[in-house]
Design a protein around this nucleic acid. Sequence first.
RNA 1: GGCGGGGUAGCCAAGUGGUAAGGUCGCGGUCUGCAAAACCGCUAUUCGCGGGUUCGAUUCCCGCCCCCGCCUCCA
Length: 470
Amino acid sequence: MRDVSTLLDMANVNMALRNRKTGFDRDSSFGKSDRDDRLSQVCAIAHVKVLPIQSRSFPFLSGPHFLTDGIVDDKTIRGAREAKIPLRKFTEQFKEAFFEDIETLRIKRADEFPAATDQLYIDKMIEMIAILISRGFAYQAEDKSVYFRINKFPGYGRLAHFDLTQLQSTGRVKHDEYDKEHIGDFALWKAWDEEDGDVGWESPWGRGRPGWHIECSAMATALLGEQIDIHCGGVDNIFPHHEAEIAQAEGVTGKKFVRYWLHCAHLLVDGQKMSKSLGNFYTLPDLLEKGYTGREIRYALMRVHYRAPLNFTWGGMNEARESLGRIDDWLARLRETAAEKIDKEKNTTHPDQQFEQALDDDLNISSALGFLFESIRETNRAMDRGELDSASANSWLNWWERVNSVLDLETEAEVVVPAEVAQFAKDRENARREKNWKRGDELRDRISALGWEVRDTKDGQKLTPRGRSG
RNA sequence: GGCGGGGUAGCCAAGUGGUAAGGUCGCGGUCUGCAAAACCGCUAUUCGCGGGUUCGAUUCCCGCCCCCGCCUCCA
């Protein structure tokens, strides 16, 4: 066990949730086409690509981690105004949706869910900005906003490998530029304007609100200290957001802010960006409605390395379902073997450390799952031959407990067989005893029509819900 | 244009300077009354393309092509 602190950047998720709950269909107003399509990519089903990494896939690491909740941006403020409800209440619904989703996907809860709008953190942000100004890293411009002076921070651009002199304006920025010393200077404190309505906080620089980037730096250092071990986030946030976080934190502390960055690749749907206009825009509730379970979605999203783009397809969902079924059947069989209590002179097999080793290697989930399935085949083969003793079966089950503490893929509660299905099964058993195959097959069809699969084993019939959902 | 990530069988995907894990789909077999599950076998002479280094490259180098993302206050 190593003690690490981790931070997941929620900037993406915030946008995602807004899409999910409110169905905002914003216009591209910043000159870059596909603006909304791009936003949509990080909607509900996308964010889990990042989350399991942060929350559960550090199997053998412990320590505090948290999710930041920084939503004091223009669109949120506008949304709250249009909905005529207070900002806090407005953002609450996104949080609720978010918690529903992480529940569905079995994502381990973070230790903290700080809110950027808490006075505690606002104070921290103000404190940091004051230090940055005193050290020459920031200045208040004529528009009353406070900006970070990137020329004062030589490391700015290093994370994204950007040469600042080469930066081109995309034309997306519509104002502010004349007040800044350098086009790349970013806002630490945005002066209040009419659009903000009643959203604002008092500061030494006047009423206003925090810049987007400072929220994360402030909450991160407040909760995890001046230096954190692992910072997760989407690749699209490397620049400018993560770059800015480094500049702010290191400008204040003079210490290296983050040891490792984990940047998650994007999600595609059917090989394309997810977008409403393409008709491939899905939310988690959409998938549940289609009959897929949380663990199936979890598996489908989890099995690809975080740094590789994940292409979401229905074929992929079915593959996830089948793969999970294979695990389920293996576990059921292993448990029976473990319960046999027959310890003949059999070959004893032991799991080894490959699963952990794979995850230790930059979270190589595909390699880890590969080892899991190899193990499944080997133990199944041993059980076919009657060569797996109960002690071995138990040690494999213990191993699975460890593996599953990371994967969290087991079915939930015992599946209850409906009375009707149970009755058909009972009738079928009688029919088969009398070798009335026709009647037996007919009953099998009826059971099948009710969504259950019946298998004949040497220990009698086994009933499984079709699709093996759980 | 610059930077980053990807391009491996029908699909998903690992991997290494020494001859391609695993999942899924499909086909054949064992088992079964028939199935299902499980197991066995088959399914990439080949790893985007073209050069080069090497005894040998999918893996290293050079050039090129395709996809995705970022390039400043959108979150």
